[in-house]
Design a protein around this nucleic acid. Structure first.
Length: 755
DNA sequence: TCTGTAGGCGTTTTT
DNA sequence: CGCCTACAGA
């Protein structure tokens, strides 16, 4: 929650941390650059023009970004509000802000340091009027958005049993990530199904507009559109942000790329930091080309490589590098560490998932007891959220403190969403998703039929759902439910009046009381209802926290509107607090950017990790491999990798084969352990620079592929190359497969082996 | 309109 | 296995 505090952009006079005298500036420069290696210094001091920082895992990336911001302000004298730094998570933004403030004091608060989504939201809150939208727009989360897709499907009279709304939503999301509006989607449609999807997309957008709502993708897309269509608006932001920094650039999608281009193409002071090997969000539309083609897109770009790893011991880094070296679509990188020696990576195969969890938990206990480690030093990473349960059970059984990071967000709990929906509806009466959510919570006799009629009326008159409901309540046919509907509508408008200008905590309390929501829960009296009430108390506490953080910073927008904005864009990982002593459980995706002395990477079986859904093509497998790399490189001192011979999936037993990634770890740095025991140390006597590529089949280079060569494809099997076109990794080949026939493949993605 | 239950379905990863 | 949805009965 502390995040909110930092999220505020304060209007303050530009900070001047020095008196401007050369001596003092030099002193400050020295402080900022102290302890940086030469490459890191380059990355910090190359302030003008495009700069690509290729930062390997654990190479001090965050440090470079923060020192760079400090350098721009403290040494170059740039006003803090002239700097825009974009990250992917609020957590990363918060961490960075903390560190900049440590260097420069509170004045650094004026730096725009936020996530893409939050930056866009603020821009749109100010300027979306140009696009004909209300500035009071609602932000729809995934569940709200899914509801709208279902509505759109219904409008097209499509059979919901045949058309999968979830898949459609995903598809629309992909379009948005690629920057395609419904018209573009329709143009690109190759079959009737795609055509139909594009039509639903169009309806979906119309319904969103009717509800005056934006989904996550819209936040980005509409900002880009705004800048495209209104150059004078863009000019304002360009003038404002003379320096643009982007973190985790390898995870940007096409729309984010365009946004960055728009903001930076004039002054060209663009610094992007990333690591292609840690790109793990292609499924969400991230486009590796953004980082791979940076030099081509930005002529004269300076490239700095950070290859010294400060985090992990040599065996861990060697193991992780060995795995990722198997990817073909990859820029070569030679990470090295000075933490020579250290324990070998340990691996064991458990009998089943229960045994796996038990052994991990017992080991953690033993480590804490015998080695003087803290629970907080230990983390368990898994591929899918569903895997957390069995570990939780075992941790509970042995009384080990733990925290699950991610999973169900606090703000995704039903009761919390209900309470917030009342606020949303008060703020934006057009918000149909919010209305649907609470119209009959607590039960007040306004059911499905009433809502259907209301929707029909709304459509017919071109009004909001709430207005449709009001009409229905006053019409004659609504006789049965009419009094109840009228009471609801009256309550809603009274609430809207009362809530304007009210502090969020009070607003929530008011709503819970006036709606009878709290009373209904209290009446229920079950343990579950108790815990719901407890969560609502926590929500009010969070709102109070927000109020305190914002005290003294008046904004033209109501405070609870700002509160809703924050809530819409925080994830669970953001509020995750590491201070308490507990074992951390999370997906490998959530683990990105974190580090732990002791890491357990569990469930390393084919179909689990790599996940079966990713096995369709080589591109999917490569992303899984990068994910594995991310997981392994989180470990500082001890890494244990486990698999289970059989596990319960979907309630039935399935048998697992150890993950292919295990075989890709150089054997010299792994040790299989049976039972508990310390891993043998790996001697540090391998020379100053360990050769991470040894024991590693080099990926097939373009040179190896000529006509007539026999190759093996992971999916199509063995075959022979019959023609080669183009050059480099992007060259295309025709391969005659022994069984699958002739296929045209792109070398870099085809994952071919010789032979 | 509400409540209970049976059946179907699904799990990748998330701002 | 557990969640969510659809449907039947009151």
């Amino acid at each position: 929650m502390a995040i909110w505090r930092r999220e505020r952009v304060l209007c303050q006079p530009p900070l001047s941390p020095t008196d401007g005298s050369p001596a003092e500036t030099t002193l400050l420069a020295e402080t900022i650059l102290a302890g940086l290696n030469p490459e890191q210094r380059d990355a910090v001091t190359t302030t003008e023009g495009p700069l690509l920082v290729l930062a390997g895992a654990g190479s001090g990336k965050t440090r470079v970004l923060t020192q760079r911001i400090a350098y721009l302000i403290g040494v170059c004298g740039i006003a803090p509000d002239g700097i825009l730094a974009v990250t992917f998570t609020n957590k990363a933004a918060g961490e960075m802000r903390e560190r900049v403030e440590k260097l420069l004091g509170a004045g650094a608060a004026a730096v725009w340091l936020a996530t893409f989504h939050s930056v866009c939201m603020r821009i749109l809150r100010r300027d979306i009027g140009h696009l004909g939208y209300s500035r009071g727009f609602a932000i729809y989360d995934e569940a709200d958005s899914l509801g709208v897709v279902r509505q759109a499907v219904a409008r097209h009279r499509l059979d919901p049993k045949i058309v999968d709304a979830r898949r459609l939503r995903w598809r629309i999301d992909q379009w948005k990530n690629a920057g395609d509006d419904p018209a573009a989607a329709a143009r690109s449609a190759v079959d009737t199904e795609a055509q139909q999807a594009a039509e639903v997309y169009a309806t979906y957008q119309r319904l969103l507009a009717d509800a005056s709502a934006l989904d996550f993708g819209d936040l980005l897309l509409m900002t880009v559109e705004l800048f495209d269509r209104f150059p004078e608006v863009l000019a304002h932001y360009r003038r404002r942000w003379q320096y643009v920094l982007v973190d985790e650039y390898q995870d940007t999608n096409r729309v984010q790329y365009r946004l960055v281009q728009q903001l930076a193409s004039e002054h060209r002071n663009l610094c992007v930091v990333g690591d292609p090997d840690q790109s793990i969000y292609a499924w969400r539309g991230a486009d590796l080309h953004n980082i791979l083609d940076f030099e081509r897109d930005h002529p004269g770009a300076v490239v700095v490589k950070l290859e010294r790893n400060y985090r992990s011991t040599q065996p861990i880094l060697a193991g992780a590098s060995g795995v990722v070296a198997n990817n073909m679509a990859r820029r070569r990188k030679d990470l090295f560490t000075e933490r020579e020696g250290g324990e070998a990576i340990r691996g064991f195969e458990a009998e089943d998932d229960r045994d796996e969890a038990q052994r991990v938990v017992r080991e953690i206990q033993a480590t804490v007891r015998d080695d003087g480690r803290a629970y907080g030093d230990c983390a368990i990473f898994y591929r899918t959220n569903a895997q957390s349960r069995i570990f939780e059970e075992e941790l509970l059984k042995y009384d080990v403190p733990y925290v699950v990071v991610g999973g169900v967000r606090f703000y995704d709990r039903a009761e919390v969403k209900d309470a917030l929906a009342y606020l949303r509806l008060a703020q934006n009466p057009a918000d149909g998703a919010a209305l649907r959510r609470i119209v009959n919570k607590p039960a007040r006799g306004i059911g499905k039929t009433s809502l259907e009629r209301a929707e029909a009326l709304a459509e017919q008159h071109g009004t909001s759902l709430l207005e449709g409901l009001r009409r229905y309540g006053e019409s004659e046919e609504g006789a049965r439910a009419a009094p109840r509907i009228r009471a609801f509508v009256r309550m809603q408008s009274e609430l809207a009046g009362q809530l304007a200008g009210t502090a969020p905590a009070r607003a929530i309390a008011l709503v819970l009381d006036a709606s009878g929501y709290l009373a209904a829960l209290e009446r229920e009296g079950s343990v579950e209802a108790e815990s719901r009430i407890e969560n609502l108390r926590e929500l009010i506490a969070a709102a109070e926290d927000f109020h305190r953080a914002n005290a003294g910073f008046p904004d033209e927008r109501g405070e609870f509107e700002l509160f809703l904005d924050q809530v819409a864009l925080v994830s669970d990982v953001d509020s995750y607090d590491r201070r308490d002593d507990h074992v951390s459980l999370m997906t490998v995706h959530s683990a990105k950017g974190l580090e732990y002395p002791i890491v357990y990477l569990v469930g390393m079986e084919e179909g689990v990790f790599p996940h079966s859904a990713a096995l369709r093509d080589a591109v999917g497998v490569e992303e899984e491999r990068r994910l594995c790399y991310v997981g392994m490189t989180r470990a500082m001192e001890r890494l244990t990798i486990t698999s289970a011979a059989e596990r319960l999936r979907f309630g039935s037993r399935s048998y697992g084969v150890p993950s292919r990634f295990l075989a890709e770890i150089p054997p010299a740095v792994v040790e299989r352990v049976e039972g508990r025991g310390r891993a043998r140390p790996v001697p540090a006597s391998r020379g100053p620079h360990y050769d991470y590529s040894y024991a590693q089949a080099e990926p097939i280079g373009a040179a190896a592929i000529v006509r007539g060569v026999r190759v093996r494809h992971p999916h199509f099997g063995a075959g022979v190359v019959i023609s080669v076109a183009g050059a480099g990794a992007s060259q295309k080949l025709k391969v005659q497969f022994d069984r699958a026939g002739v296929k045209t493949l792109v070398l870099k993605f085809a994952n071919l082996e010789l032979g």
